[in-house]
Design a protein around this nucleic acid. Structure first.
Lengths: 205, 205
DNA sequence: AATCGAGTTGACCGCGCAGTCAAGTACGCT
DNA sequence: AGCGTACTTGACTGCGCGGTCAACTCGATT
């Protein structure tokens, strides 16, 4: 695209993005037609195609903008802290704050992962997030702050707990981000926290 | 539907379900047309509507069958074990075994959650899974096997770790179910396992 | 051999979709 | 006031979709 926009154009474009984000999240990407979008805003269809090349391009832009904004939020949240575990916790807190004010993006990203045409972009974003997390986990291991283990798997688990509690507790019930972050952090630190008595569940491999 | 089928009909119906499951998972539900399905099997379009009332009904049936089969697998895996933590672990192991041989269902369920028309059914299934897990966690707390805490949140975290590692480790890289289950169990027991030294990350609420 | 119904065919229908475009309007600049 | 361009309109197009149906095949039963 890269069209030059006047302030008025910029505003209209943002209207379209905001409205589309809400409708995609509420009704799904495919069931939401371009006609739904322009009718919902009370404008002609040409407006849409003045600002976006296609419905798909708009969706990709929503995703890209969202991921970029989340990542920036996480970075700002971590500030200049240098303790890796503390950085992890600050990142989790920042994520929860961000998700709580961008609820729609969560649904959109989950959908995007399920369709071939969008999945590749999502995977790229997830690789970045995993890399960031993994680096912190590895640092914590090297510093002897946590026991050695598979940093990749542990990072995925941390991200998974963040993700699922963001969905259920933050977005589902509307619990305060700070509470949810505390629960995520707690679980990531200690799990269920039982004694190390091994259950007899281990099957013969 | 509830049509009576001859063995031949039963087989054709299963062909359709299997093929549709694969295509929906690979290309997405909406982008896969009924014409794609019948052409892919080399049959006429009427065949589809002989066995299913609509594309949507077929999809719902795939979801229902899948959830039912997973749940039954979990129950069988837990057997007559009565230690709640061991039951949890056996359930996790059974889930991993099941997902590893029903990879497509994972993607389908994730998609179904993102669209209003399917989400309600999925939520119901998730409530059941959460209820089962929560009961075990509560029993473990009552027995003093793990510290007291919010059983709902902890159960969601356990399910989240299972889910994310199933996706990334089991389905993504194709690690053996028994290994992935061990990692899930390990993280759920101890988290990252660091000392309880509190990081200074806690923000003023 | 005749019958019957389960299973199959593919042309067809109406609709709503993404996307187009010729014409028009609002607005800043000179 | 006049001009250029950023923006807007909505009728229109072509297409592919989900779904229908009258006609047909095939195999089991009698």
């Amino acid at each position: 695209m890269a069209r030059r926009l006047t302030p008025r154009g910029e505003q209209r474009r943002n209207e379209l993005i905001d409205f589309a984000t809400a409708r995609f999240a509420a009704n799904g990407y495919h069931p939401t037609s371009v006609a739904d979008l322009v009718d919902g805003l009370g404008v002609g269809k040409g407006v849409f195609y003045w600002y976006f090349e296609s419905k798909e391009e708009l969706f990709l832009e929503i995703l890209r903008d969202g991921e970029r904004a989340l990542r920036r939020s996480q970075w700002e949240g971590m500030g200049d802290e240098d303790d890796p575990i503390a950085r992890l916790e600050l990142g989790i807190q920042a994520s929860m704050d961000w998700w709580s004010s961008h609820r729609d993006l969560y649904v959109l990203i989950e959908f995007a992962r399920t369709e071939a045409s969008f999945a590749s972009g999502i995977r790229k974003g997830e690789k970045v997030a995993l890399g960031d997390t993994q680096k912190l986990v590895q640092q914590a291991m090297d510093a002897g702050m946590i026991p050695d283990g598979n940093a990749v798997v542990l990072s995925q688990a941390v991200l998974g707990v963040s993700s699922v509690l963001a969905r259920t507790q933050l977005l589902g019930r509307k619990r305060p981000p700070v509470d949810v972050a505390a629960e995520v952090i707690d679980f990531c630190r200690h799990g269920l926290g039982g004694s190390s008595m091994p259950a007899r569940a281990r099957r013969s491999a």
